[in-house]
Design a protein around this nucleic acid. Structure first.
Length: 678
DNA sequence: CTGTCCTATCTTTTT
DNA sequence: GATAGGACAG
């Protein structure tokens, strides 16, 4: 027996040893999924499969990193070096740069994140003279994203007889055009262009020849394009192993398609299916609760998690008057347990449905002086100064990046107003040249106001001067020079009067230099483009993997908790309207919310505490709320009718009530204003 | 063109 | 309750 199959249970062993042909591993929470994946790859290498022919795809950088390091720990030194392990998105970026010609894009394309996307979408709406009040840019973005994920282009919609549809089609088209002008791809494009690249026969052949063994982690989160990529590359040999759990599919809103895992057997008729149902993570009490909840979902692979661990405490549920009391209870409870049971802080995590919930908890944690680690939320990269500096850098890397240029063209103020910018944009569109070209050749265009254009030109030229500093060792100097050249301190001085705040903002700017230095040390290939790419594709990974992580309580959303485990878990805000979320109740999509609850419950190893409140502030107003139906389910009960009815009522009433009230308020205010003036 | 005040919207989750 | 974008005055 291979040393990589020793110590595995029979199902796990089967998953490791079935190396040829399609394989579906249905891995329930805590059933040793990662172990199976890593051992399977180690086993392949041991059998003599060259590392370079293995391709492993994950959804998060964290998962990719963990997979890599755990395999490296299993196989002889250096044996894992040539493995290809990464997120779908990062692997696509690499492939698209390498085969940019075949993909029909420029090799130095930039990647735009959610914030850039929003800017581009707003621009598209403005160009079409559609007021944001009639078409919400965020909603447009998510709809366009879903369309892209379904591989649907804008033309189909434009041709529609439905006015709303064709409007959306035009917005979609403008939005895409805005991205293309800037020479950037959004996250969906990365997958989409990859799908198209693989339609090129010779390129596809290269991929098929190289990658003989495919592995997809978290297969339940696969969306259309990702599925298509896997299908294409796996080709005839079909040595494709997918691992996932339909009960943990929580990215439906992002186009993930559970049917992909439910139908794997149909897509690959001779697939082997292995079920991992022995849970090595949690106490029987926790598993019982988890099973009791998920049982209520109709569309799923039937399975039942069995706990291998010894008995523990019962699941605790605790009702509190409001969110402040909830936070206080949890934090004090943590303190108690740390004192009485000597449990380290790093064993604790507090899980939330939404990203704002942690706020109240942060206050309490600070109050008690407990160090914590907030995953996601307002990240370092969301800070204005960081986004500004990154925009400058993007322009250095790619002068045609219109989105970035528009962001900082007048930051700090250099006398370039919206009207001048509009005029220049019109010229750029008429001449179909990049905005930067219009600025450089402003003397050729009489309609462009000279003073602002020359100011913009000076700005661009100052950035041109930095273009020689893009390679690895110069990166830090590039950032330092840049901050000087654009006089970013003027922006900080202008915006913030408080000296303490200024110091903090400046610290964030220096932090970018640290990041650049850190990146430059990664190797000879490091340059500005690779740096920017790294930043965009790993925004939400906690960057403090060092000692900092140590003794801290972890706060995060249920979505980012997937794949993790903690000895002590607090699941906060178990209420109707929050978990399940009001939006999902409205859309009738309770099952994904239930899976979310299931993910939360199954994170806990030894103790799970579920908290809920009687009243919660919403939009600044306080509302009475009911306990979550999942709480009842967890204890094997049926949720009382009034709980469900209450949730339904809240949903039905809101859309009707609001507009009427708002209007009344608005006119009242206007009247008051007029009165005041007269 | 810049600064200030007011308003509307946000709050589901993320590569 | 914050924050970003719009309206308006200087």
């Amino acid at each position: 027996m291979s040393r990589f199959t020793k110590g595995l249970n029979p199902e796990q062993r089967k998953a490791v040893e079935t190396t040829e042909g399609p394989l579906l591993v249905l891995a329930g929470a805590g059933t040793g999924k990662t172990r199976v994946i890593t051992h399977r790859i180690a086993y392949l290498l041991e059998k003599g499969v060259p590392a370079s022919s293995v391709l492993a795809m994950t959804f998060t950088n964290r998962a990719a990193g963990e997979m890599k390091s755990r395999i490296a720990g299993l196989v002889p030194k250096g044996g894992a070096k040539n493995l290809t392990v990464g997120t779908f998105h990062s692997l696509c970026v690499k492939a698209l740069r390498r085969y940019s010609k075949q993909a029909g894009i420029r090799p130095g394309f930039g990647i735009c994140d959610a914030d850039d996307q929003l800017v581009a979408m707003k621009q598209a709406l403005r160009e079409l003279q559609i007021p944001e009040s009639s078409l919400n840019p965020r909603i447009c973005l998510s709809r366009v994203s879903l369309l892209k994920n379904r591989l649907t282009g804008p033309e189909v919609l434009i041709a529609s007889s439905d006015e709303g549809e064709s409007n959306l089609g035009r917005v979609y088209q403008r939005y895409d055009a805005a991205l293309r002008v800037s020479g950037v791809l959004d996250f969906d494009d990365l997958l989409l262009y990859m799908v198209r690249l693989l339609e090129d026969r010779p390129t596809l052949a290269l991929f098929r020849k190289r990658y003989r063994y495919l592995l997809v982690d978290e297969y339940q989160d696969t969306n259309g394009p990702q599925y298509s990529i896997v299908q294409s590359i796996s080709g005839k040999h079909q040595n494709v192993c997918v691992v996932g759990d339909d009960d943990q599919s929580i990215y439906g809103w992002r186009g993930a398609d559970v049917s992909k895992i439910l139908n794997f057997g149909k897509d690959f008729p001779d697939a082997t299916i292995v079920r991992l149902e022995t849970n090595y993570r949690s106490t029987p009490q926790i598993i019982k609760g988890a099973n009791a909840v998920i049982r209520n979902n109709a569309s799923r692979h039937e399975k039942a998690l069995r706990a291998a661990a010894a008995d523990g405490d019962a699941i605790i549920s605790k009702r509190l008057p409001d969110e402040e009391a909830e936070a206080q209870f949890v934090v004090e409870d943590i303190l108690d347990r740390v004192r009485s049971e000597q449990i380290p802080l790093s064993d604790f995590s507090i899980l939330f449905r939404t990203a704002i919930q942690p706020r109240v908890f942060e206050v309490q944690l600070r109050h008690y002086g407990i160090p914590y680690n907030l995953v996601g939320g307002m990240s370092f990269f969301d800070r204005k100064e960081v986004r500004d500096i990154l925009a400058y850098l993007k322009i250095v890397a790619n002068p045609d990046d219109e989105l970035s240029l528009l962001r900082v063209i007048n930051t700090p103020p250099r006398g370039i107003g919206t009207t001048s910018i509009e005029k220049m944009l019109v010229v750029a569109a008429e001449q179909s040249i990049p905005l930067a070209q219009v600025i450089h050749r402003n003397d050729q265009f009489p309609e462009v106001p000279p003073a602002p254009a020359q100011s913009a030109q000076r700005f661009l030229e100052s950035l041109d001067g930095l273009r020689g500093l893009q390679s690895g060792p110069d990166l830090v100097n590039l950032v330092r020079e840049l901050v000087n050249v654009v006089d970013y301190d003027a922006e900080i001085r202008k915006r913030y009067t408080d000296e303490e705040v200024r110091i903090k903002r400046r610290a964030a700017v220096s932090e970018i230099m640290n990041m650049a230095e850190w990146h430059a040390r990664r190797g000879a290939k490091a340059n500005l483009t690779s740096f920017l790419e790294d930043v965009v594709l790993s925004e939400n990974d906690d960057r403090e993997s060092d000692e900092e992580k140590g003794e801290r309580v972890t706060l995060m959303t249920l979505h980012s908790a997937k794949g993790l485990e903690f000895s002590q878990v607090y699941l906060a805000g178990a209420e109707e309207g929050l978990l399940p979320h009001g939006r999902s109740i409205q859309d009738g999509d309770i099952e994904e919310e239930r899976r979310l609850a299931y993910v939360g419950i199954t994170r806990a190893r030894h103790r799970l505490t579920v908290t809920y409140v009687q009243s919660r502030a919403k939009y600044g107003r306080r509302e009475g709320v009911m306990p979550s139906r999942f709480l009842y389910e967890m204890h094997g009960e049926e949720a009382p009718k009034e709980v469900i009815a209450h949730a339904q009522r809240a949903v039905v009433e809101e859309p009707e009530k609001k507009p009427a009230k708002k209007k009344a308020k608005k006119t009242a205010k206007k009247r008051a204003k007029r009165k005041r003036r007269s």
